[in-house]
Simulated scan of single mutants.
Amino acid sequence: MNAEPVVRPATIDDDAELLEIDHVTWSPRWSPGSPPDRERDPAFFREQHGGPEGFLVAELDGVVVGYVALHPAGHLASHSHVRIIDGLGVLPAAQGRGVGEALVRAAVERARAEGAAKVTLRVLDTNPTARRLYERCGFAVEGVLVGEFVIEGSPVDDVWMALHLDS
């Protein structure tokens, strides 16, 4: 794998690869939820993901190695100017190759193209690598929910970050 990441919209054909990325990259250090269960999650784009429309995928040498999820942050008209990055995963073998940054920057550009004025995300304070990635992409901390989660018996802060877009 020597190529630059290529980011494109996800399709239903990416389902199995994204499910595998989700399974391989899950850790309690960066997700307060339960680990993905292959028995109960037979498809990545299951009903709660709403299909592939809100996802971008990254390829290296034609192989899907990562994804980012970008969705409206809420259902109110007064909140329609905000998008949220609510999922990011990169296969361990592709980490450190610019894939995460390419995905985040592509998500920001998609949000801008959709007319959004702001992109938000949440990251656990136990994931400093992801936080540095978001900061490189221009995101800043807007708030911290101290001890919002208890993971493996320890309180974990939920860090809210945002990027305000120039329209």
Score class of each variant (00 low, 15 high):
residue 86 D to Y: 12
residue 128 P to V: 12
residue 43 A to Y: 01
residue 52 P to W: 05
residue 135 E to C: 03
residue 21 I to R: 06
residue 10 A to K: 03
residue 81 H to K: 03
residue 127 N to R: 05
residue 1 M to G: 15
residue 165 L to Q: 06
residue 123 V to A: 13
residue 29 R to M: 13
residue 11 T to A: 04
residue 97 R to Q: 08
residue 120 T to G: 08
residue 23 H to V: 09
residue 100 G to W: 02
residue 167 S to M: 02
residue 56 L to S: 02
residue 46 R to Y: 03
residue 31 S to L: 09
residue 91 L to P: 08
residue 143 G to E: 15
residue 25 T to F: 06
residue 17 E to R: 08
residue 45 F to C: 00
residue 5 P to V: 06
residue 27 S to F: 14
residue 6 V to W: 00
residue 134 Y to W: 07
residue 5 P to Y: 06
residue 10 A to V: 08
residue 74 G to A: 14
residue 16 A to Q: 08
residue 6 V to L: 06
residue 29 R to A: 12
residue 22 D to E: 12
residue 1 M to H: 14
residue 150 V to A: 13
residue 96 G to D: 11
residue 36 P to N: 04
residue 39 E to W: 03
residue 34 S to H: 09
residue 80 S to H: 14
residue 31 S to Q: 06
residue 8 R to W: 01
residue 128 P to K: 01
residue 12 I to V: 15
residue 98 G to H: 02
residue 5 P to M: 02
residue 119 V to N: 01
residue 128 P to S: 05
residue 9 P to R: 10
residue 152 E to A: 11
residue 115 G to M: 02
residue 17 E to A: 15
residue 34 S to M: 10
residue 37 D to R: 13
residue 29 R to N: 14
residue 2 N to I: 04
residue 17 E to S: 15
residue 147 G to N: 08
residue 60 L to K: 00
residue 107 A to Y: 00
residue 158 D to N: 13
residue 139 F to M: 02
residue 77 A to S: 15
residue 35 P to V: 03
residue 154 S to F: 03
residue 20 E to F: 12
residue 15 D to Y: 09
residue 96 G to E: 08
residue 29 R to P: 09
residue 131 R to M: 07
residue 20 E to H: 10
residue 108 V to C: 12
residue 52 P to L: 11
residue 135 E to N: 05
residue 32 P to A: 15
residue 12 I to C: 05
residue 41 D to W: 04
residue 118 K to V: 01
residue 57 V to I: 05
residue 75 H to G: 12
residue 59 E to C: 03
residue 3 A to P: 02
residue 21 I to C: 01
residue 112 R to Y: 03
residue 159 V to Q: 00
residue 2 N to C: 13
residue 72 P to V: 06
residue 150 V to P: 09
residue 127 N to D: 11
residue 79 H to L: 15
residue 8 R to M: 02
residue 112 R to K: 12
residue 140 A to D: 02
residue 48 Q to K: 10
residue 64 V to A: 14
residue 32 P to E: 07
residue 95 Q to Y: 10
residue 78 S to I: 08
residue 130 A to Y: 14
residue 57 V to R: 01
residue 145 L to E: 10
residue 57 V to M: 04
residue 70 L to M: 07
residue 161 M to L: 13
residue 138 G to K: 00
residue 70 L to N: 00
residue 36 P to D: 02
residue 114 E to L: 13
residue 120 T to M: 14
residue 109 E to W: 08
residue 114 E to W: 04
residue 74 G to E: 15
residue 43 A to K: 09
residue 92 P to W: 06
residue 27 S to C: 10
residue 117 A to I: 05
residue 33 G to E: 10
residue 119 V to R: 01
residue 101 E to K: 14
residue 47 E to S: 11
residue 94 A to F: 05
residue 1 M to W: 15
residue 54 G to A: 05
residue 96 G to L: 03
residue 112 R to A: 07
residue 105 R to W: 12
residue 98 G to W: 01
residue 75 H to V: 15
residue 99 V to M: 09
residue 98 G to K: 01
residue 84 I to H: 08
residue 30 W to Y: 14
residue 123 V to T: 05
residue 146 V to S: 04
residue 125 D to M: 03
residue 41 D to E: 04
residue 72 P to D: 07
residue 43 A to T: 14
residue 77 A to P: 11
